[in-house]
């Protein structure tokens, strides 16, 4: 039976768990799920920490990961973002010189997690720069550009940051902290 299950995709093996107690015993074996976890995690940006706890069965790890992956994160963030919903101003992110990042108190999206950024510059030699970007946590690299009104923009395919105008300009409040 194990030989048959080896030939099945993850979903079908998961279904086999419900066939009977004996099947559950075989279908939950790490032998089957180790490779399935590796396959699932390959190339993924976020793997839930809980799923990587040692001693957790590979089936549990797989199941946790799949359910976590189905969590509609962008949707979730979007609904909390007042600017996106048109009910408030853009959220603020403060980039501190020490490489940490903070948000305004009461920011729902922020949720109190730790955040850090770094500026990555790689030189090819002779003063030439090959790459120049900002990395926030483990997100895809963010590239910095300058807009027509001399404001700064930093973005990747998921996120976009704009610099806050000077204190005396419209929408400007003046930097509370030093802003990139």
């Amino acid at each position: 039976m194990l030989m048959i299950l080896r030939n099945l995709d993850a979903r079908s093996v998961a279904l086999a768990l419900l066939v009977s107690r004996a099947w559950h015993g075989v279908a939950s074996s790490d032998v089957l799920w180790t490779s399935k976890c590796e396959e699932l995690w390959l190339g993924k940006a976020h793997i839930p920490r809980l799923a990587q706890v040692r001693g957790l069965s590979k089936l549990a790890a797989y199941s946790l990961s799949v359910m976590d992956g189905k969590r509609a994160a962008p949707e979730y963030w979007r609904n909390l973002d007042p600017y996106w919903k048109g009910t408030g101003p853009p959220m603020r992110r403060y980039f501190h010189p020490d490489g940490s990042q903070t948000a305004d108190p009461g920011d729902k999206v922020w949720g109190g997690h730790e955040c850090c950024y770094s500026i990555v510059t790689s030189f090819v030699g002779e003063g030439k720069i090959r790459e120049h970007y900002v990395r926030i946590n483990r997100w895809p690299r963010m590239f910095v550009s300058r807009k027509l009104d001399w404001s700064w923009e930093m973005s990747n395919n998921l996120y976009c940051y704009c610099s806050i105008p000077d204190a005396d300009k419209e929408f400007g409040t003046g930097p509370l902290f030093s802003v990139l």
Binding site: M3, I4, L5, R6, N7, L8, D9, R11, S12, L15, A16, L18, V19, S20, R21, A22, W23
Partner: peptide, 27 residues
């Protein structure tokens, strides 16, 4: 043969797999 059997039960409901293998549900 196990590959063939797997193909025959892939994506099938739990009930179908039980019937296929003649397994009694003891949950």
């Amino acid at each position: 043969l196990t590959g063939v059997a797997a193909k025959r039960i892939e994506n099938k409901s739990v009930e179908y797999v039980r019937a296929f293998f003649g397994v009694e549900n003891d949950f």
